[in-house]
Design a protein around this nucleic acid. Structure first.
Lengths: 325, 325
DNA sequence: AGAAGGGGTTTAGTGGAGCTAAAGGCTAGA
DNA sequence: TCTAGCCTTTAGCTCCACTAAACCCCTTCT
């Protein structure tokens, strides 16, 4: 197939009317242009340029080729414009993996910000459990995923680039009228006699409770196995027992429950929220943009920002609101 | 500007669904394809392919580029088709230089044949005098030209590629009732007493007469200076004198004049009909085709083919007709 | 549990395409 | 006649694109 570079050079030459002019416009010597045109003519087996004393003129075949060359140049420029659109996020799709507690806390704000900043780009969120999220990263089903881990089940994957978004502390969930609210924080050891609401189906937070209680020297007495955090809150409010939960899971807190910080006698397990993308693969512009936004949003959900609003005795309904600026 | 080869390779890869497949279809190794795609991605600053366990899939930006790549490939194929059309002479223009005697003899048949064989191609004939024809060859105003010369003014031009088409002998033109027709050929020496019709305006054939008569030992007595060969024939027919002429100039012979071969006592000057094109420049397909046709047509106008029809006593009106095959 | 096969990547090394520099030729115009 | 443009040729260099070989991953078949 015809050498395209030479065809494009011919097009420039046609427009300049001379090899010298086109060559210097293309940043090369007239010699190079001359050689390229000789080769192009040899390639097509026909003369394409008539050499005049001053400059060159096209032959019929040359005219035909230049018309094609112009079309090709148009396409190339359009291709570049397409790429620029993707780079500017005027176009593009980001497939993002997430999991329920993040989808209900960080994510809505991140999606809103992304949509506002990059109206042309689309985000598709796929929610799944940890193992599936990692699988989706490997298969390329998502370009970016939110993951989590605890100290005892660290995500460690050569094929993933991980960044730490924020630490999500484990907190105690108690009824709004609980005596436990009298102190700013509660020692786990003092809760050995309590009944507990846990998550069913081997939910990770059940593991968190068991490990912590074992460290505190008792086995928790299970009063109810809930299937989501709303149900768990309801049970706590109804006085069936108390619960622990990662604080992000309680972004939507019922009015009749309260959160209490766990004391330092038994270190409260901390859930890390991570951002993962495939290692060794170049991220799309949309991926990079979303990473930035998620970091910024995570900033608002960090411990220090939330403390004033959500822990202790301050009563407030609705999501967290950090002061602007 | 985007590297087009890589873009086209991406297009092939998109269609094959794998680097390996596209690479072997393109006659290269998978390694080469992989390297090229890595570079293309680096070039555009975005991932274009998702690597799957079996093969690859396009990213959004990849899809956009492939659409452009397909358009470019279409243009390239169309360009090749354009060139083929020129090569097949379905398109194209040949600018051909000629001069009156050839234009009135060889050329009509050549043009007819060319038009019949190559309906899509066009021939533009520019008629001029020798010096202008050569000039037009140099400036590229014509790609091919018919030229002529005599022994004493040989065309010799480094910048031209010359081929010999045919020899055009000088013949004697006499009235149809002339006593000179009694012999198959006439000695020039025996014509010292004749009156002569010559061409005015320093026409080359006047030079031919002067040189020949000088060789035969006399100066011609000029009875009339005509401006073309029809006029000269008329004067000969009217009995004002006799004339010499290159035989091709008498392709349209009046019924009341006859042609007589000149004897060997004084060598009759022979006009060479030549075909010339610029040296060192590639001929267009149309030029090559016309060269072939002109040689074939010239064959019909050579001495041996014409003798039966036009010289001596055979009376025949109209152009020469060589027997088919 | 291997083995086979299909695919992608990395690395090192090579050949040729494409470039520059230099010199030369041609033509138009001063 | 000389100068200024422009095209071309030649020699030589650089670096791009390719191959070969080895490796990795994953799936599928034995």
């Amino acid at each position: 197939m015809l050498n395209v570079r030479r065809l494009l050079l011919l097009t420039e030459i046609a427009e300049h009317g001379s090899l010298t002019g086109a060559a210097s416009a293309a940043g090369m010597t007239a010699s190079a242009a001359s050689q390229q045109m000789s080769r192009l003519e040899a390639e097509v087996g026909q003369p394409l340029l008539e050499r005049l004393p001053r400059g060159v003129r096209l032959t019929g075949a040359g005219e035909a080729l230049v018309a094609r060359g112009r079309a090709i140049r148009r396409e190339l420029r359009a291709a570049q414009a397409d790429l620029d659109a993707f780079a500017r996020l005027d176009r593009g799709t980001l497939r993002l993996g997430s999991f329920p507690t993040v989808s209900a806390s960080l994510l809505p704000l991140a999606l809103t910000r992304f949509a506002r900043a990059h109206a042309g780009a689309e985000v598709v969120v796929r929610s799944a459990m940890l193992a599936q999220l990692r699988e989706m990263l490997h298969t390329g089903e998502v370009e970016l995923a939110l993951l989590w881990d605890y100290r005892w089940n660290r995500v460690s994957d050569e094929a993933l680039t991980l960044t730490h978004l924020l630490n999500d502390p484990t907190v105690l969930v108690v009824p709004a009228n609980s005596r436990l609210l009298d102190e700013p924080e509660v020692s786990l050891r003092s809760l050995a006699a309590q009944h507990w609401i846990i998550r069913a189906d081997n939910h990770p937070v059940a593991e968190v409770l068991r490990r912590s209680c074992r460290l505190a020297g008792f086995e928790p007495r299970i009063a109810y196995e809930s299937h989501d955090y709303q149900e768990a809150q309801a049970m706590v409010a109804a006085g069936l027992g108390i619960a622990i939960a990662p604080r992000l899971a309680l972004t939507n807190r019922r009015n009749d429950v309260r959160l209490v910080r766990l004391g330092a006698d038994v270190p409260a397990p901390i859930r890390r929220i991570l951002l993962a993308r495939p290692e060794n693969r170049m991220p799309t512009p949309a991926t990079l943009a979303m990473i930035d936004i998620l970091h910024a949003v995570a900033e608002r959900f960090t411990d220090t920002n939330l403390d004033r609003n959500q822990l202790g005795s301050v009563r407030r309904v609705g999501g967290p609101r950090a002061p602007r600026a």
